[in-house]
Computed example of a mutant assay.
Amino acid sequence: MRVQVLILVGLTLFTVFSLTPIVWALLISIREPIDAFSIPPKILVEPTFRYHVDIWLGRGFLGFFLNSAIIAAGTVLVSVPVGTLAAYALSRIQTRASRSLLMSLLVVRMFPHVLLVIPFFVMARSLEMINTYPAMIAAMVALNQPFTVWLMRSFFLEIPRELDEAAYIDGCNAWQAFWNVILPLARPGMVVTSLFSLLLAYNEFLFALVLTGTDTKTLPVAIAEYGGEDLNYWSLSAAGAIGIMLPILTFMLFFQRHLVRGLTIGAVKG
């Protein structure tokens, strides 16, 4: 009982510590700067939502959100199918070459983003693809592909190989066994992988800063324009940060059941 109480207290403190910046940003976004940064702090003030209205309707954040949604959705639609096929093959082929390929993907994922963004910028500029969706989607797919392959491979490893052999005995070829038998069992893992890939692409800043332009600017790049020493920009930045969180938070809550199911695959044995 004492251990459970300590765990509960620890989790509570961790939750409070994690949510404090979000709550603080929310309070700033619904207050006038003179009230948000007054000394001593004012607790009871009349809330205002003009900064939220201004950031979305007056400053074009709806268009930036559309750009982020297109890039994130395109990344998922390309990365997850390709990564799923590669992960299935790497989970069933246990050779030195397959292990070397997996380690190579892991090494690529460990590279700093600032090191990878330079060659992508050079290639996009030479192909005249700066400020286009395909350039940003291709960069996000390349950046997230190692994560997708490794995560999906872990789900495929939880599926017994005897199911493949049983499908072969029943007359299926390799593709039919994968499509009709293995893939339905790995669907929760695909949901989890898709959600994390979507989140990574949605929040990407550095690649979006370099590869996008006025027509394809994403939300993280747009919100970076507000800040500095002007306190009015701080309220706009806080409103934008809260607004950026809401779509992806709603999306995650909607798929929460699938997310929990996918993350708990393999947790119970026997």
Rank of each mutant, 00 (worst) to 15 (best):
P81W: 03
L90M: 08
A69I: 13
V117K: 12
D54Y: 06
S68T: 14
G60L: 11
H52T: 08
L102Q: 12
L143V: 07
T48E: 06
F49L: 14
P160V: 00
L101N: 06
N131T: 05
M136E: 09
G83D: 02
D35R: 08
M152C: 03
P47I: 11
F111K: 07
L62G: 13
L57V: 12
I70N: 03
R125S: 14
A138F: 06
I137M: 03
Y133A: 09
L77H: 01
E46V: 12
L57T: 12
M136A: 07
T84R: 00
S98C: 06
I118W: 09
L101G: 13
Y88G: 00
S126A: 13
I70F: 08
I130F: 07
E128W: 13
M152W: 00
A124Q: 12
A87T: 01
A142E: 04
R109Y: 11
A135C: 08
V45Y: 14
P40Y: 12
P119F: 13
V82K: 00
S91A: 13
T75V: 02
S68W: 09
E128T: 10
P146V: 00
P41L: 05
F64L: 15
E32M: 09
I159L: 01
R92F: 01
S154R: 01
M136I: 11
S79C: 12
T84C: 02
M129Y: 09
R125V: 02
F64P: 04
N67D: 07
S104L: 13
R109I: 06
Q145T: 06
R59T: 06
F49P: 14
L44C: 10
V76F: 03
L115S: 15
I39T: 10
M152L: 12
S154Y: 03
L62M: 14
M152K: 00
F49M: 11
S79G: 04
T148Q: 02
G74L: 00
Y133S: 05
S100A: 14
I71C: 04
T95C: 04
Q145G: 00
N67A: 05
V122I: 15
V82C: 05
L62I: 15
S126G: 04
N131D: 15
I130Q: 07
V149A: 02
G74C: 01
G60Q: 10
V108R: 03
R92L: 01
R96Q: 02
T132H: 06
L115V: 15
P134F: 05
A69Y: 15
Y51P: 13
M123A: 15
L115Y: 10
I93V: 11
Q94S: 11
R96L: 02
G58F: 08
R31T: 03
G63T: 14
S154F: 01
V45D: 09
T48Y: 07
S79Q: 05
S68Q: 10
I55W: 15
V78F: 07
A86L: 03
T95D: 05
V108E: 06
P40M: 13
R50G: 15
I118E: 09
V78C: 09
A138W: 00
A97L: 12
L116W: 01
N131V: 04
Y133M: 05
P41K: 04
I71A: 08
